[in-house]
Design a protein around this nucleic acid. Sequence first.
DNA 1: AAATTAATGTGTGATATTGACGCAATGTAA
DNA 2: TTACATTGCGTCAATATCACACATTAATTT
Lengths: 251, 251
Amino acid sequence: MSEFLDTAAERYHPGLSVDCVIFGFHENELKVLLLKMKHTAKWALPGGFVEKQEHMDKAAIRVLEKRTGLADIFLQQFHTFGDPARHDHEMDLELFKQSGRDPVKDHWFLQRFITVGYYALIEFSKANPRPDDISEACEWKSIDQLPAMILDHRKILEKALDTLRFQINYQPIGHKLLPVKFTMPELQKLYETILGKELDRRNFQRKMLAYGILKDLGERRKGGAHKAPYLYSFDVKKYNAALKIGLKGSW
Amino acid sequence: MSEFLDTAAERYHPGLSVDCVIFGFHENELKVLLLKMKHTAKWALPGGFVEKQEHMDKAAIRVLEKRTGLADIFLQQFHTFGDPARHDHEMDLELFKQSGRDPVKDHWFLQRFITVGYYALIEFSKANPRPDDISEACEWKSIDQLPAMILDHRKILEKALDTLRFQINYQPIGHKLLPVKFTMPELQKLYETILGKELDRRNFQRKMLAYGILKDLGERRKGGAHKAPYLYSFDVKKYNAALKIGLKGSW
DNA sequence: AAATTAATGTGTGATATTGACGCAATGTAA
DNA sequence: TTACATTGCGTCAATATCACACATTAATTT
């Protein structure tokens, strides 16, 4: 941390950070990847700073790859948070002290920060969550059982979720969040979770199939306690073509 | 300009600007307010810097009020542009020279800038466009006859338009862009311009009326060369309520 | 091994929305 | 007065949505 504070002013763009809301889907629940910060009970969104001549999107990708071990992540910028009150100056001073130094006036780290929010959709099972230097844990948390979070991270997360909901007909939600093979009930659960409401099983299936973006694999997922559902895959080409004009239909 | 360069580093957040895409509707055309820059043939979006402890949204409002003379403007943040190549370092140096000074290394103004894009919807007839210090004109330009623009401003404008199109069912487009009283053909033209395609007159009317967000004023707009159309107003309360859940319907 | 259970697969009809038109009414200009 | 372009109102078939019923199936229970 101390070394970071020394070199940050040279390396990074002043007063600018990126924060990532990383979504995953597991056991019929929508989850986000959060970091448990050291020296506090609160959790944080994975974030980082933007190097002086680095593309902002690139900085977000860097953060994402570090935390998940994945490359080629689906990423979307959704909002920039520019309230001067969003940063907790007291907390910054605290971090400074913990690094064993006296707060320097006008230090790079102590100025006001703007943060750019990105959301990512990743396949849960492929990720390998890893904490960073300033955190002691990196875990998936269900979006309806979120722990206390630092600063305005809760607000950022909510905004990401709102955006995801709003763009549901224009983003490859299913393709990025589900494994290659999935069942119709799984796909439905995903939609229900994002939309926050239940859908009629039969109407959902009819509509999805009508889009013509699914490939019926013929196989069934055995092992469940009841009738085995069919497995599907996305026809990526048709899926992307359909998303360009938007999957029509109100949910 | 020279004075600005001296005090900027103290007053403003480093490497951060806001740019506004100000939309207006006039003579059946969607227009944007642009500034003609001094010493170059190119035009620019009205923009500005963010004061050190100022809310970013507030900075955008400040810019808007200065350029249009209007208060209480409808404003939406839509995207942040963080490509380091977006700024034209040569042009910055040129501006520096024109202020009669030698480029100082690492000067506040010469660093890399991130810009946050906002779009505004205003009632054309109420605005009083005024140029600022570094521009010699401030005019409305039709979106299908745009002049050459500096930096990535053209791209920013396109993105604003895409966003507007995307959010058309969730933003008070008509209410903010049209005068209090308007005719159905006018409202339709507005939608057609934003969507970039023609709509059936009769179906449009049926749908609009079905939303229940319009008040029929009973009056007609005389003076046109043909049958006089009725005048309408928005029922703001119902309009806003409808926008919350979105005006359902595909255009 | 048969019955039970709780899912899944398939289908159907009422209702609402959409898209593509027809036609009469109206204000100005010829 | 007539011609004409535009507006107001209406129709109808095609499509989409919504709310269900019923048959099928894989594991579990009896």
